[in-house]
């Protein structure tokens, strides 16, 4: 690994990344929050959120990306997503059925509607976003370790 490579890609890529990465993250969050009224949802939104961090890592190198979202934080978010999802399911269980939709459904096609589904979407997006980022990091760092040994 050369030293320039550590710092990331060329100036053009870095500039474009700086301009777009926030929009990508925002779009992912939009997809998550509108999962129950339009196509998309927790998984798709989570993938887009993870891609924004992967984008950052590809353009600027891993140090910058880790400053935004470190491996430990990603792991915490991943577990938080899973536990949140399970808690939502168990709250429904306390109300009668596992995964019962216990919040009022509201009016269709509004942002605040559909009961627990938006909450589930948020939990899933946390899990998927952090998990996909962690998978990417695990695969990339493993390769770096292998090469540095040689």
């Amino acid at each position: 690994m050369s030293k320039e490579h550590e710092k990331g890609m060329s100036l053009i890529v870095k500039t474009i990344t700086r301009l777009t990465v926030g929009l990508i993250l925002l779009y992912g969050i939009y997809i998550v929050f509108h999962g129950h009224v339009s196509p998309g949802g927790g998984f798709a939104g989570g993938v887009i959120i993870a891609l924004s961090f992967i984008h950052l890592m590809l353009a600027y190198g891993r140090e910058v990306a880790f400053r935004k979202l470190s491996k430990a934080t990603a792991s915490v978010f991943e577990n938080l997503g899973a536990i949140l999802f399970l808690i939502i399911a168990l709250l429904g269980f306390a109300g009668g059925y596992f995964f019962l939709n216990f919040i009022s459904k509201g009016e269709p096609f509004r942002l605040f509607s559909a009961g627990i589904i938006p909450l589930c979407n948020i939990a899933i997006s946390l899990k998927v976003g952090a998990g996909l980022f962690a998978i990417f990091v695990a695969l990339v760092l493993l390769r770096l370790d292998g090469e540095s040994k040689k």
């Binding site: 792991s75 915490v76 577990n79 938080l80 899973a82 536990i83 399970l86 399911a89 168990l90 269980f93 596992f98």
Partner: peptide, 13 residues
Amino acid sequence: VAIPLAGAFLTSF
């Protein structure tokens, strides 16, 4: 299903 899942995630958390 819920108890082992909770056990798994709490252990890793």
